[in-house]
Design a protein around this nucleic acid. Sequence first.
DNA 1: GTTAGCACTCACCGCTATAGAGTGCTAACA
DNA 2: TGTTAGCACTCTATAGCGGTGAGTGCTAAC
Lengths: 341, 341
Amino acid sequence: MLDDRKQRILRAIVDDYISTAEPIGSRTIAKKYSLGISPATIRNEMADLETLGYIKHLHTSSGRIPSSKGYRFYVDDLLTLEQMSENEISLINDWYATKVQSVEEIFRETSRILSQLTKNISLVLAPQLTQTTFQYLHFSPLNNHQVIAIIMTDAGFINNKIIDIPQGLSLSDFEYIAKIFNHYLKGRHLCDINMNTFRKLCGETVNSTVFNSIINIIEEALAQDKKERLYFGGARQLMEQPEFHNLDKVKKILSMLEEEQLLCDILQPHRDKNVAVTIGQENKYNDIKDCSIISATYHFDGKPVATLAILGPTRMDYGKVISLLKFMNNNLANIFHKFHL
Amino acid sequence: MLDDRKQRILRAIVDDYISTAEPIGSRTIAKKYSLGISPATIRNEMADLETLGYIKHLHTSSGRIPSSKGYRFYVDDLLTLEQMSENEISLINDWYATKVQSVEEIFRETSRILSQLTKNISLVLAPQLTQTTFQYLHFSPLNNHQVIAIIMTDAGFINNKIIDIPQGLSLSDFEYIAKIFNHYLKGRHLCDINMNTFRKLCGETVNSTVFNSIINIIEEALAQDKKERLYFGGARQLMEQPEFHNLDKVKKILSMLEEEQLLCDILQPHRDKNVAVTIGQENKYNDIKDCSIISATYHFDGKPVATLAILGPTRMDYGKVISLLKFMNNNLANIFHKFHL
DNA sequence: GTTAGCACTCACCGCTATAGAGTGCTAACA
DNA sequence: TGTTAGCACTCTATAGCGGTGAGTGCTAAC
């Protein structure tokens, strides 16, 4: 464990590096932070901190920067969270009020706000379709050979899928099935919707050929929707960060953002916890070993529902990001709490 | 008008610059393109072409690059469009087949394909909500104080809006209105839906207080949806282009992409024409005076419906982009033709 | 244990020299 | 008269070379 003076020096180094993005030397620490000790003493302590792995050198004569271990200690033991200011809170609420008209927009706007306020990449992972519960189904004719299936789930998510009408079936067959769905299946998990539950719930009273075809179609459509819904943003903001004044890094991150599945995988281990912080080298994926990810997950009924996350350089303002994520998470919880009533 | 030899030299310069992104000199032209004349002659011709404004110098001792006027001549008089290869066509059709399940996804996927194949920014402008015609309305309860309005329009677009239930109204009031809507308003332009048309169509048989409130709510919701739907992509691909190996330029473009309204304005003059090409300096907006925009607009019933566009450096492969856009536009037309039957 | 002093390291900046690509001009040639 | 070879000239890009300054580690004195 670090003694008090080492902790204060480490905090100064991390704080300074987070705000300036420049390696810091002993003289500067002594001048800027009134620790009551001389540069030489700080130098000795810094040498110790380096041996212990909390800070590192870029080259012999450069100042020190925190290592992943240093940030980890900072986050776990040195960080004191600030409250969000009234100002920021009302700004955020205004944004939601003016821009949001549907559930999808809640998520989109949440992502926008997060990247806007943190200057980092924001990720918002909404529940997989099959993890939500069924509310309402409607088939609307599109033309002679296709209908659109509109499915609404518990939290107000609307899905629509174009479906080819198979030979021998008519729109009225679809309408009939929709009635049965709406009557028997409300409140059931979409992943449970298959022939078996169906038969159990409505017995054998239904015309089973028509039935089979349509259920199959629906099962198939749902199966294709395995991927989670991911909203993200902030590529432009990220470019403001000095560590991304480098085209290759920006390219790497942009490429990563296009691989939704990869992002979902990266966020997956974060979904159980309430607030999770993964710092630099702790990341599993090589491309983001100089980045940190902070996330907050909104749970309902003990299950993770939506995950908000920030992805940015290890040198991010952990205090600010964590309190913002906590706030936004609660905010989302409030919004969704209404829906689950 | 340029004589034949000047045209051949100009074509060589443009072709070469498009493929290499490097200024080209007389010696290189003589070596690479068998024009049967010596570098010195080419030099003389190039001096003429420069005086005429078709090509320019970056500095005294650099090779020549085409000017906007040069590109314009190239596009209007020198360009021969290639056919898309069978290979590309089947690739594109596969992409559509595997990824598209709803109308929104048609547009999203179109944008993805365009940027993927051209390595430039793609823009897809779908019709404004109020320009489409009404097909179907449904109110679905979300919780005790809110309903979700689901509106489907002619081309299979599904919109949903969260609506607060006003004091004194119940879900059944909404359901009642939905019935009337579905009965009387099918096929009407959404911008025509207001109290007046309503009264005209269904007379005074309806309870007018309930009525007024709900129509107002719907009018309001529609009014907020003035913006066109814009799908875009390709920021990552654009970074592959040598002219965007420059952070400031990338930032400028990314910022522009976040201003949807600006993009819509930029595309607006393109919407009347079938295929439109705007080259470099011809652009109205300063930030893209070193870019070109090529667009194709799909018309139905004489009106522009969807516009596909490519935004990239003036040094873009005009031949390839134009034929791709034409192909994609026809493809979209095929898809939508089905819906408008 | 703390601090002042000092030699040492290394990125960064500005300067100069050099190479190379390309031009414009002139004079010779068909 | 149009075409070409030759040559001096221009300008960029690159490499090399001190000088500067921030920062370190070590030593010796307090």
